[in-house]
């Protein structure tokens, strides 16, 4: 019970920071909008994939991208917290490291999910119309994705000492995760080597599941997507709690 309240307090702090630093949400929504309307709109004027306009086709991929980026980069805040010494107050409090991790993860997922919802709400602007059920399915998929990626970001953040180091490591991780996920292209006609890598990228299954939910095309059955995402989330979450227990 005490720990539950403590987790709530940790989450509350993250949420306050998010709502007070509005620049965070603005910048994280701006890039996906460029992708959808400039890149997608530009190519979409001539390109169709599987009979679907390119702009519509990449829409789910870009929603997944916005969650991917904001979730992983959330990990950098723990480095700032350490640098300006406010992490110490949390670490010296009678909280289990598990609670600290859960609080941080929930904070990160909240940030990402708010962005995700904004992205889903603009779906009509690209001509995608979501039923309440497909909306909920999209939310579930994005939540699993964000849970695993926020955990990943926090693991890296808790191991790194400088924001610069974090950004470097994360760039080497986030861009491959994005480009190999099939967010921008269909998976069914790829050369062997590329196909092999996309199958190993967990984000692929998030993008694929989201396509099922939003535009009704997909490579894998939905239950496979969900299963892979759930396992990925469970693994990263568990690794995260272990890393936090050993932190500092």
């Amino acid at each position: 019970m005490r720990q539950a309240e403590a987790v709530y307090a940790l989450w509350f702090r993250e949420f306050k920071v998010f709502t007070r630093e509005r620049s965070r949400i603005v910048t994280s929504i701006f890039t996906p909008l460029l992708w959808i309307f400039v890149f997608g709109g530009g190519l979409g004027s001539t390109v169709n994939i599987e009979g679907i306009n390119y702009q519509v086709y990449i829409y789910p991929g870009i929603v997944a991208m916005s969650v991917l980026f904001s979730s992983v980069f959330y990990g950098v805040y723990i480095i700032w917290d350490r640098k300006i010494d406010i992490l110490k107050e949390v670490l010296v409090a009678p909280l289990s490291r598990y609670s600290v991790f859960v609080g941080k993860v929930l904070g990160g997922c909240t940030d990402s999910m708010i962005q995700a919802i904004v992205m889903l709400l603009i779906s009509f602007a690209v001509g995608v119309y979501l039923s309440p059920l497909s909306f909920l399915l999209a939310i579930l998929i994005l939540f699993l994705l964000s849970l695993s990626l926020v955990s990943t970001g926090l693991i890296i953040g808790s191991l790194m000492e400088s924001p610069e180091g974090f950004n470097m490591v994360v760039s080497f991780l986030v861009f491959p995760l994005f480009f190999f996920s099939g967010a921008l292209y269909p998976l069914n006609n790829l050369p062997m080597w590329l196909s092999a890598i996309t199958y190993m990228d967990p984000v692929t299954y998030g993008v694929d599941g989201l396509r099922t939910a939003t535009i009704g095309v997909s490579q894998f059955p939905l239950h496979i997507d969900l299963a892979v995402l759930a396992v990925f989330a469970a693994v990263m979450f568990t690794m995260g709690t272990k890393t936090f227990e050993r932190m500092k």
């Binding site: 307090a9 306050k16 300006i84 406010i86 949390v90 009678p94």
Partner: peptide, 18 residues
């Protein structure tokens, strides 16, 4: 080690919960 982006009171409320 007080949190800049919170109010004074919020800092205390969080501490009380922790």
């Amino acid at each position: 080690s007080v949190d800049d982006i919170l109010t004074g009171r919020e800092n205390l409320v969080l501490h009380a919960m922790w």
